[in-house]
Design a protein around this nucleic acid. Structure first.
Lengths: 226, 226
DNA sequence: TGCGGCGTAGACCGCCGGTCCATACCATCG
DNA sequence: CGATGGTATGGACCGGCGGTCTACGCCGCA
């Protein structure tokens, strides 16, 4: 949420600042990155910066929003309204495989977002931007619930955040292990991501048989659910 | 890892400093908390502090280690060598529920650890301390694999990191929603944590091929309540 | 030529984590 | 007794941080 003037700036200077900021924030985090350093490297003075932005956080929020927009622009979301129950999981799988193509854009987003503490991620400053990036997950989860394919014992928000966290772990490992992406490794990875999503979201846990509960200690006090 | 002298200090002063630091770090995070403020409140001078500690991170690491030790001292780890295949999941569940007993201690640990970025959590400074806290999980995963209860298609490290990430999310939500912990809310939470572990770790059911296809997974599925 | 507002530069502020040194304390020893 | 040397402490001081503020260049316009 920079001031509107920022978008009247010469596009070259604008994207240059955002690019440098992205790199610094991804490398050193919100607190670790030096605003002074970013501005010096981008050739922007303190006065100019605060003419366009509110504060340091504002730059990070702008970087995140920029990356989220670029990613969403590339991804196709199917019309969830026409999905049938049998189509749901195959559709999810197809989507996940399709997302793999935009890993180069999503990478920036993850690398920056992963440097935020959970508390910061929930702050009014960053929550709306991150919610935008999660909108795909959210819509998928909601569609899956409507079709009876996705569990309803947890709020959508919780499921989305679990998905996000697992993706961050798996993508991080993938990028660390496979510095050069091959079609084969990418397929393996997307397969794993999809499998993890399914494990977390499916109405039933993966292994059949007795579920949690028989060993529950002491009597369960029946109380309203918050 | 404070200098050894720290443990020669008067226990009163020592625990006072750690208590105040815990509160500040839990409330404002590693970067947000002011070391100057903590020291002023604890009545410890700069010189004295740096006589005992390396830097600011050192204090946080000490706080974490202190909490982790206190927690682990209370938790019993079952003898995984004697576990049978049928005992595995109930044992895991009992262990996770056993957390309930030490949540007053674990709460501090979570509230502080949750303020770290994933990157910081993996840094050489904090990783060993946090690994100590998650050593239970690692041993559990290894035991479960030996017994054929836990999937072997992913490395142990990946599984542990997935567990860690999911725990961070769930604990973060739990602490945000329940500022004061009640036995009931805690039981609900541990139940959720166990269920998530099971979903992530369990070996796949029979006929693992083409499981992406069927929307309603297998027989004995519980109906979605809704 | 003078004027007013947009945009800019960078000196400056208070606070931060961290360093440094003078000194107080106290047991040991000639 | 005084001298010595390690332990422990106080707090002035440092560079760098995010953020503020003021002076000024620039340009369209009368």
């Amino acid at each position: 949420m920079p001031r509107a003037r920022f978008y009247n700036l010469a596009p070259r200077a604008r994207s240059r600042l955002l690019r440098i900021a992205t790199r610094q924030f991804a490398a050193r985090g919100l607190e670790g990155a030096s605003l002074n350093e970013i501005l010096a490297e981008a050739g922007v003075s303190k006065g100019a910066y605060y003419y366009y932005f509110d504060d340091k956080d504002d730059l990070l929020a702008t970087v995140l929003e920029d990356a989220a927009d670029a990613m969403l622009a590339r991804l196709a979301m199917p019309d969830t309204a026409r999905l049938s129950r049998e189509d749901f999981w195959p559709t999810v799988q197809r989507l996940v495989f399709g997302w793999a193509a935009s890993v180069d854009l999503a990478g920036d987003l993850f690398r920056v977002a992963v440097q935020l503490t959970p508390t910061q991620r929930r702050s009014p400053r960053f929550a709306p931007v991150l919610a935008k990036a999660q909108s795909l997950y959210r819509r998928l989860v909601e569609a899956g619930r409507r079709l009876g394919c996705v569990r309803t014992d947890l709020p959508v928000d919780v499921l989305v955040r679990l998905l996000e966290a697992n993706d961050a772990v798996l993508d991080g490992i993938f990028l660390a292990v496979h510095p050069t992406v091959t079609p084969w490794s990418l397929q393996r990875h997307t397969r794993l991501v999809f499998d993890t999503m399914r494990r977390l979201l499916a109405v039933e846990g993966p292994a059949p048989g007795r579920r949690a509960g028989n060993a529950a200690p002491r009597a369960r006090s029946r109380r309203p659910r918050r």
